[in-house]
Nucleic acid binder design. Structure first.
Lengths: 339, 339
DNA sequence: GGCGCCGATGTGAGCGATAACATTCCACCG
DNA sequence: CGGTGGAATGTTATCGCTCACATCGGCGCC
């Protein structure tokens, strides 16, 4: 056990530093803000005083005089879904690199009140901009009801808001479906994510359009909630109804896992009897039984792009209204040519 | 696309509200802080003015006069490991419930400079306390070098720091090992997490002690890095060296997945030939092939406890120096009685 | 040598809120 | 009917910092 930290009553101010260095507070201010026209010897003396007192400028006071806070607000749902949480992680790391801190609040659900409460919380922290990870359409609605005084950047795939960024779910779904079709599959069932998820909707649309373009019938999709458990239940239904299919395009890797589990219990083998494509490329996917073919998304890049956009918006630069990254297909052993 | 938000140049101040309501700014302050002795009619009038201008008190100004910021700082590594990220999620949700915002910064690695940079970032945001998710021992070292002016609460399982909270990894590892021993296993190999992870060290220690208490030899543990890939490689090594074992206690579920994958490739079946116990109970574990026996940790509860401790510390109340939650065993199909 | 200029530094105001103290107003009492 | 007390409200100082402007001092030039 370490000794308890000796807590100092009050922090030193710029005046304390000034007194110790024998200069005016304004000179100290110049030094800590790297202003020109401070003699080298003076700068040094001040710097020493700063170190000696371990002085840290008071952010609140700086904020009051209108200085940049280098703080951005981030709103997410509290879910541990791979997509949203990876996006957050990507943004966090980009923010760190740009020397920005992030004030984060989670909305307990998608009710407008919850979202607005979360927004209110971070807005209380002097943020330069707000980033909202809008996994659900309702979050967008809640947002629309607000008249905010800071710029907002939204992460969502519908393209309804501007500026918004996302990974192109529609394109990803098309690639996945094309892959299955190229392997000779014609009866391709889609296991979708929740209906109010915009990512899920886009993936569904991509699958449906691609099927249509190839003259294939797109049967009604079954809807899960992203969890492995829901995938499992859908897998069971799929086998019970005696539905005919040779391939499954599942809207995320976790549900794929559940589906494959249910299929295996019925003696249906992947990929011998049914090919399966997932979405996300979670770290586990490579080691599923069998290793899962899936769509990889570059969340780190997304995080970096988000921060770039935020900085552009904050500094009143031109920004692309709707920016999109494209997922890439990772072929593993869960898909194969139809016999 | 929604119409672009009309950005107002400057926010209304307490004086704007006061003027509109025809009272002094102090009366407005009383209303927004729910002070007594404001006539009901006045309160109403002020409230209306507040709403009309959608006035929000300026946090920086409040902070300057010493008011509580209702903001806590959180430091993590940017890893997406299930444990740390679930802890963060748990804390975030508890903070939301307590109307606290969270300023989050990730340390790019465990170098003291990285950690200190992250700490500096959040310390610039007027936090009432700092919570550090110290998954690695080195983070603790970096922290020890700092003389901070805010209370610090650490999430770490070694118990070196105070106050600290954690889930009792040692106890969990003991339970897992006991489970295997109770099933008749004697040759139990441990696949450990990285050596500088305190959780990994505690799990290793728990396994070793339990083995010793039962008069069993604990062979040298193999060390992974928490990823499924590392588990896979270790699984391969295990089979190559022709090591004798009937059970595997793997330090987390992801590595378990990799191990089982490697074993399956060599024709070794789980649980027929080898029993496997994981740790974490990630959502996927239930649908692994076979469903994984593992140790479940209550991260939500941990998050709540962290916030309680933070509040206690901030308000100078007595706190338990080292608090621990206990994981519970979830038995699934990857373990069975030794033939 | 005096003037002007510029680099280095100091002074004072003000950001938006709260706390402490001052004032007003009215009801109630002797 | 004046005095008194407490509720309601107003006034002022203050927090730590940066900005705008004031000041100071030395150097170069005519």
């Amino acid at each position: 056990m370490t000794s308890s930290t000796p807590r100092v009553r009050t922090s030193p101010t710029i005046f304390d530093v000034a007194r110790l260095a024998g200069v005016s507070h304004q000179t100290v201010s110049r030094v800590i803000n790297n202003h020109a026209s401070v003699r080298e010897s003076t700068r040094l003396r001040v710097q020493q005083a700063v170190d000696q007192l371990s002085y840290r400028p008071n952010a609140a006071a700086r904020a009051m005089v209108g200085a940049r806070s280098r703080n951005i607000g981030l709103i997410t749902t509290g879910s541990s879904d791979y997509g949203p949480s990876s996006t957050v992680l990507g943004l966090l790391s980009a923010a760190r690199a740009a020397d920005y801190s992030v004030s984060l609040a989670t909305a307990v659900d998608t009710e407008p009140e919850s979202v607005q409460a979360a927004v209110g919380l971070v807005l209380g922290q002097h943020v330069e901009a707000l980033v909202v990870v809008a996994s659900r359409a309702r979050i967008l609605d809640a947002l629309a009801g607000l008249r905010l005084r800071v710029p907002v950047v939204v992460i969502e795939s519908s393209g309804r808001t501007s500026p918004s960024l996302s990974i192109d779910q529609y394109a990803g779904a098309r690639t996945a479906t094309e892959h299955l079709i190229a392997l000779g599959h014609r009866d391709i069932v889609h296991v979708a994510g929740p209906g109010d998820s915009m990512d899920a909707t886009e993936r569904l649309r991509g699958w449906r359009d691609t099927m249509a373009e190839h003259g294939l019938v797109a049967p009604r999709a079954l809807e899960g909630d992203w969890t492995p458990g829901s995938g499992y239940r859908i897998g069971q239904q799929l086998t019970q109804h005696g539905r005919r299919f040779t391939a499954l395009f599942v809207a995320n890797d976790q549900m794929s896992l559940g589906c494959v589990h249910a299929l295996a219990e019925r003696g249906i083998r992947v990929p011998e009897d049914v090919s399966v494509v997932g979405f996300d490329d979670i770290p586990e996917a490579e080691h599923f039984a069998p290793p899962l073919t899936t769509m990889r998304q570059d969340f780190r890049q997304l995080g970096t792009d988000i921060l770039t956009t935020v900085l552009d918006v904050v500094e009143d630069r031109q920004v692309e209204p709707v920016a999109r990254l494209t997922p890439t297909l990772v072929v593993r052993r869960s898909t194969r040519r139809r016999d």
